[in-house]
Simulated assay, not measured.
Amino acid sequence: MKVTVEEDRCCGAGSCVLVAPEVFDQREDDGIVLVLDERPPAERHRAVREAVAVCPTSTISVAEVAR
């Protein structure tokens, strides 16, 4: 899995951070999403997919990639 975000679409809601704090964080100055781990391990994939689902602006996307 590879995680990408479109920072210009992020509204700073923080839903992703609540669901997957090991993978996402927010910039202090404006709350925009930061990806901490763009290739998270398999045990975090479920949480990342949930973060994608709850993102109010569809900022986060994932692509399945071979390891």
Rank of each mutant, 00 (worst) to 15 (best):
L34G: 06
S15G: 14
R67K: 00
V5E: 01
K2S: 08
V35D: 05
C11Y: 04
V3W: 03
C55A: 05
D8M: 02
I32T: 13
A51M: 03
P40M: 01
P41R: 14
V65N: 08
C16H: 03
P41T: 14
R27I: 07
G14K: 05
P21Y: 00
P41L: 12
E43P: 14
C11L: 09
D30H: 02
M1G: 15
C11G: 13
C16E: 00
V35P: 09
H45W: 09
R46F: 07
H45Q: 08
A42C: 11
R9A: 11
T4K: 09
R49E: 09
S58N: 13
V48M: 04
C55L: 03
D29R: 05
V17T: 15
E43K: 07
V65G: 12
D29E: 13
S15N: 06
M1K: 12
V65F: 07
T4V: 15
E28C: 02
D29Y: 06
I32V: 15
D29W: 04
R46W: 01
L34V: 14
D37K: 09
D37I: 13
C16I: 03
P41W: 02
V65K: 10
R46L: 11
F24K: 02
A66G: 08
S58F: 10
V5A: 15
G14L: 06
D30I: 04
I60Q: 02
R46G: 15
P56T: 05
Q26N: 04
R44V: 14
A42P: 15
S15P: 01
S58L: 11
C16D: 01
R67N: 01
A63Q: 13
H45P: 08
S58M: 08
A13Y: 03
T59D: 00
E64D: 15
E43A: 12
D37Q: 12
R49S: 08
A51G: 09
T4W: 00
R67T: 03
H45A: 14
V54A: 07
R46Q: 11
E43Q: 09
M1Y: 10
A42M: 10
A20G: 13
P41F: 07
R67C: 00
G12C: 11
